[in-house]
Amino acid sequence: MAFFEMAKTALRTVLSRPATIRYPAEPAKKTLLTRGHVTIDESRCISCGTCQRKCPAQAILLNKEEKTWQMDRLRCVVCNSCVDTCPVKCLFMDTQYTAPTVTRGVEIVTITYVKPVKAADKGETQG
């Protein structure tokens, strides 16, 4: 039987710096790999829809006609699946968590990518 087993640890923790961060005065811990939120480079997206198919939470909706990329931040589970499978690598994982929100809603991004005109087509239009 032992008594005061905790005394040493308790004394040390009382005298040492706090183990917690004084958030938000001090920024939260982040690493290079931290999965914060998904961002898109709308000028490179080819509207293939792979991200929508590969999303386990069905948070992404791609409208090919209207050329929009919709993301429901409250559905997104930040699994990195879309970023990994994007064939043109236009999706990125930002290390910053999304800010808290009180409203539901989707984020709509208009895709500005324009398919480059092929050399043969160019000839036709010029001719």
């Binding site: 905790m6 640890t9 923790t13 183990a19 690493t31 790999l33 999965r35 589970v77 994982m93």
Partner: peptide, 26 residues
């Protein structure tokens, strides 16, 4: 007190998880 100390050490494990995989818990 013991509860707080156990979780303080656990935080170091979670940090390694985040540094190597990108997620603390998932």
């Amino acid at each position: 007190n013991l509860f707080m100390n156990a979780w303080r050490i656990r935080e170091r494990i979670l940090d390694v998880m985040e540094q190597t995989t990108g997620g603390r818990v998932i």
